[in-house]
């Protein structure tokens, strides 16, 4: 089995060899490590992307706005990702962002995952019908389990999930009540002699 370290190093070098700068190549290396760590087909998609890269001349993006559309030529997922991560603290203020027409969208995913860690919020990402919940760059929760190449997608929809509990107050109270069974009811003597014993309150 190829180690994650080898995946990182080799994809970084391959990205540089394709004409990207060393800085961008380093980011791609980290991303491939992440995707493969989470069991997503990063290397497979990158390989296919490289085969198309010189032919397609994918569209770049500078400033990310609410709706971003590439008309005839699809967006480059790497350029898109670098800019997304660079602008993450600004774009998080927009509730929902749409990207229309993106090549190899799976290569964009690790940038969103890393963005989730930077802003400390979960990010929900929908690539056409495939759903991904990116949890602070710790895990990726998804309904996409196939090891396949996604050459293109019509729409990526990104929304920032506010930090709220996944449970109701009532559910929490019920759990808390059970946990109380590990507590000891303090008797008068315990109240007197346990923590802080021997000290007067105002000494």
């Amino acid at each position: 089995m190829i180690s994650l370290s080898e995946i990182d190093t080799t994809t970084k070098r391959a990205t540089k060899a394709m004409g990207f700068s060393w800085g961008v190549a380093e980011e791609v290396g980290k991303n491939m490590r992440l995707l493969e760590l989470y069991g997503l087909p990063g290397v497979k998609n990158l390989n296919e992307y490289f085969k198309n890269y010189k032919i397609e001349n994918y569209k770049s993006i500078k400033v990310i706005s609410e709706i971003n559309e590439a008309t005839s030529i699809p967006y480059c997922p790497i350029e898109l990702g670098i800019n997304f991560l660079d602008q993450i603290t600004f774009v998080e203020n927009v509730k929902e962002i749409k990207f229309i027409n993106i090549a190899f969208p799976l290569l964009f995913l690790p940038f969103i995952s890393r963005g989730s860690e930077v802003i400390g919020k979960r990010i929900f990402c929908k690539i056409d019908e495939k759903e991904f919940l990116l949890n602070f760059n710790q895990t990726i929760y998804s309904n996409f389990l196939k090891s396949e190449v996604i050459n293109n997608c019509k729409l990526i929809n990104i929304s920032f999930v506010d930090n709220v509990n996944t449970f109701t107050e009532n559910e929490w109270n019920e759990i808390y009540k059970i946990s109380e069974k590990t507590f000891v009811e303090e008797s008068e003597s315990l109240k007197r002699d346990a923590a802080g014993a021997g000290l007067t309150d105002n000494d």
Partner: peptide
Amino acid sequence: GSGKFGLADRF
């Protein structure tokens, strides 16, 4: 060490 030639990754 650390993942070279298939060795265990540090993580």
